[in-house]
């Protein structure tokens, strides 16, 4: 299927917070109560529609255990969006956010859009981290924030799509160089730049458009 853009995402966070379950809910619309452990990195994809544009999300789901960080770091590079996930029923997963964020910022493009996700919102009775704490953390570090439930699918769709919207907005503002794949964005095959990009991008990157329009 053709698409205007491909955005690369990475899902990070402690082990057992529900990274793979969020991905499974988003790509397959189902929930697996006991998900196999993710070893290294897994991979999923889905098409979404932003502003009438087909956008392909290519999502990298990483292993959460500390040992694997030295491996998963190599995937940060070239991601346009990151979902940083903690478990609202386990405070230590919230406490580790700073270290995850440092890692992400250090190894990714500065424009990467980061969505903070407090997962397992269906387990209200076992809640250990207040919603307000998540919001405050996100505000302080310039992240978007949502609470989700991979089990009930609550906000899962929104989390992935809002991240895409923000990336798309940044493209339109010309903050992303869409021709540099290291930014985690790829223009779809057989896409004409002038129709796929927003007007402001067209202005800023007019030079590139000239050189690329020949292949459309």
């Amino acid at each position: 299927m053709t698409y205007a853009y491909l955005f690369k995402y990475i899902i990070i966070g402690d082990t057992g917070v529900g990274k793979s379950c969020l991905l499974l809910q988003f790509t397959d619309k189902r929930f697996q109560p006991v998900h196999d452990l993710t070893i290294g990195v897994e991979f999923g994809a889905r098409m979404v529609n932003i502003d009438g544009k087909q956008i392909k999300l290519q999502i990298w789901d990483t292993a959460g255990q500390e040992s694997f960080r030295s491996i998963t770091r190599s995937y940060y590079r070239g991601a346009a969006g990151a979902l940083l996930v903690y478990d609202i029923t386990r405070r230590e997963t919230f406490n580790h956010l700073t270290s995850w964020l440092e890692d992400a910022r250090q190894h990714s493009s500065s424009n990467m859009v980061i969505m903070l996700i407090g997962n397992k919102s269906d387990l209200e009775s076992r809640r250990d981290v207040k919603r307000e704490e998540g919001e405050a953390f996100a505000r302080e570090h310039g992240l978007i924030f949502m609470e989700t439930s991979a089990k009930t699918a609550c906000n899962v769709e929104e989390a992935f799509i809002n991240t895409a919207k923000e990336i798309y907005r940044k493209i339109q503002q010309g903050l992303f160089d869409v021709h540099n794949e290291a930014n985690g964005i790829k223009i779809g095959p057989q896409q004409c730049i002038s129709t796929s990009a927003g007007p402001s991008t067209a202005q800023r990157n007019s030079g590139d458009i000239e050189s690329n329009s020949g292949c459309c």
Binding site: T15, G16, V34, H35, D36, L37
Partner: peptide
Amino acid sequence: KSMTDMNRTFP
């Protein structure tokens, strides 16, 4: 402490 995920072996 690091073995919280045992139940995810061969579900």
